[in-house]
Design a protein around this nucleic acid. Structure first.
Lengths: 337, 337
DNA sequence: CGAAATTAATCAAACGTTTGCGTTGTTTTT
DNA sequence: AAAAACAACGCAAACGTTTGATTAATTTCG
């Protein structure tokens, strides 16, 4: 029961050399002779020496830690993304700490503060639903802590971010439906505050007008993404004068609510549903969305992590260009031919 | 652009007092007078002083960090559990770092090593599928790093763990099927190395024999939990002399493979399937398992985290009783009445 | 052969904070 | 009035490691 780990000092004392020599020996510093070096390494191994990370971090002023703040870890998208982040960080020997905002702005602010206190080397953030102010992130600039946003990004360009092009994805989705012959297409969009809602709407309009159809604003309804909200939106479509035959749902969860409701009303066969996120489980449904937009969470996480690690290890953070990375999304067709 | 954060020393210099007084003042130490204390606090606030965590951790020899090692973060069960762990840790002002073993023993060993180097105060582990040796955990004892296992636990009692009683859950599941009138019930079990497989089998046998039925070993088949393995198991049942009318699947993923295959063969209506995990999505399936065992990942994570925090803050880790916590699992019936 | 260059190692400071102990000066007790 | 108690603060060491500056010993070269 050796409750105290071995230190460099102890090794030094045993070998009758200075601690600095031991440190240098372990790091293959040229000014330490080969024989001494080997003696050091051997003794270190036999004593089970492990560098005290806390001490190193402290003395170097770096933590080799990146923080991740995201809304909800248990959502498939985020857990996949963070899985990628962790994998990338591990490759470069960085550690990941993370925290969930639970889609609460106040909590997000607190967490940013906490991460700063923890002296993370950098931050990866997917912002919460009701975040519309961004001072808490700007504060990090003065501490030289780079921030990379991913997926849920702020609505301006002068930050680093990785995100999906939801606009082009929506164009693809709507085009797909138009090609299938649909002429009245409804969209259940998210809250208007979300940037992602804007993108979806833009993509929708683009596809509609490009195909020389008339854009009907009443076919795009905002929704709070709950089951209740989804049902309300569905009801609007059902009583619409030009009842849509296809619907673009904000994400797979909304799509599931919708399909459930349509099944209950026994109108499920009157609609084609297209959705976002492409939950793996979707393909097991009998009445699944006919297509889903894959947003590649693993890839997004990977890219965001790499950008952040780049930023951390680049000497002059100032007057640098901003990484604005767009991950192309794909429309995955689920229909059995 | 203040790139360097304020330190206690600076505050001390400005106030012409010693750093120790500043430290004590900030911590409301009684030996600092009220006036000085207030002066210190005010200046600290106005200079935006933030304690340097790295320095504190180093000097205290504690990191206020707990490590979590689990197989796969993107699985719903684990992401929910870790979400709970994070929430609990935050309450007590602990930070969580985590890593995925990707169900690989070697990787798990490496990660334990890394966590130890990071000097985590404690470790939460859900072991990988192919872990059968546990020396890497025992090593942690000598460093006074407590370990609490959850869900995927080692097959012995002299460790701390939180897990579900899969045995009693399986009894419930099989009883449910028996009550529905099934007389030949198949079980797709996991690899025989897994403790959880043993428990399922025991529960199955218990329910069968308690109901005065004959236990037929050929109705319990081991499976590697892949889609291919599931199909092979299904084939065994289909050609069985006493073809089962109900099947207990190892988890919802296996159940999905199974249902997909049965649908393809058009025999889906010949079977009732019961499963484990209770993925939220399950209820949206048309042909869903008739019931699923809820293992309460959030609760498990919560309990495991609290036990670990207890252990960390208990003075004498030695000769202490082991926490063996069993979370009762419930059978959630999915059938629409 | 002496000066310069190379090799091998040491010294000491530094990172920021905490804490046991010591030192004042003041107040209370007997 | 001397002793004891207390309040308010400073001193200095300690945590483990890294690193720039130095020193000492050895080798190389003109």
């Amino acid at each position: 029961m050796q409750s105290k780990p071995t230190t460099i000092k102890e090794i030094a004392k045993i070998l009758n050399i200075s601690p600095s020599s031991v440190s240098r020996g372990l790091h293959d510093h040229p000014s330490i002779g080969a024989v001494t070096r080997e003696k050091i390494k051997q003794l270190a191994k036999s004593l089970n020496y492990e560098p005290n990370n806390a001490a190193i971090l402290f003395q170097k002023g770096k933590t080799y830690t990146i923080g991740v703040i995201l809304p909800e870890l248990s959502e498939h998208f985020f857990s996949t993304a963070i899985s990628a982040i962790e994998d990338e960080a591990l490759k470069k020997n960085y550690t990941v700490i993370f925290a969930q905002s639970h889609d609460d702005y106040e909590q997000e602010v607190k967490l940013v503060e906490k991460m700063k206190n923890q002296r993370v080397d950098g931050l990866l953030v997917s912002i919460s639903k009701d975040t519309s102010k961004f001072d808490h992130f700007e504060k990090l600039n003065s501490f030289n802590i780079p921030v990379v946003f991913f997926d849920r990004i702020p609505p301006f360009k002068n930050v680093h971010y990785v995100a999906c092009s939801l606009e082009s994805a929506t164009v693809k989705a709507v085009n797909y439906l138009l090609k299938k012959g649909h002429r009245s297409i409804g969209m259940i969009n998210g809250p208007s505050t979300l940037y992602a809602s804007e993108e979806r709407k833009d993509g929708y309009m683009q596809a509609i007008t490009f195909n020389r159809l008339k854009f009907d604003p009443s076919l795009v309804v905002n929704c709070d993404l709950t089951e209740k909200g989804t049902i309300e939106a569905a009801d609007q479509f059902l009583s619409h004068k030009r009842k849509p035959t296809a619907i673009v749902a904000f994400n797979d969860y909304v799509a599931l609510f919708l399909i459930k409701y349509f099944k209950k009303l026994n109108v499920i066969n009157d609609f084609d549903v297209v959705s976002y996120a492409n939950l793996p489980i979707i393909s097991y449904l009998d009445h699944s969305p006919v297509a889903s937009v894959e947003q590649y969470p693993y890839l997004q996480g990977q890219k965001a992590a790499n950008i952040l690690l780049d930023l951390i290890n680049s000497p002059n953070l100032e007057n640098q260009a901003f990484y604005n990375t767009i991950v192309e999304s794909d429309l995955i067709v689920n229909e059995v031919k």
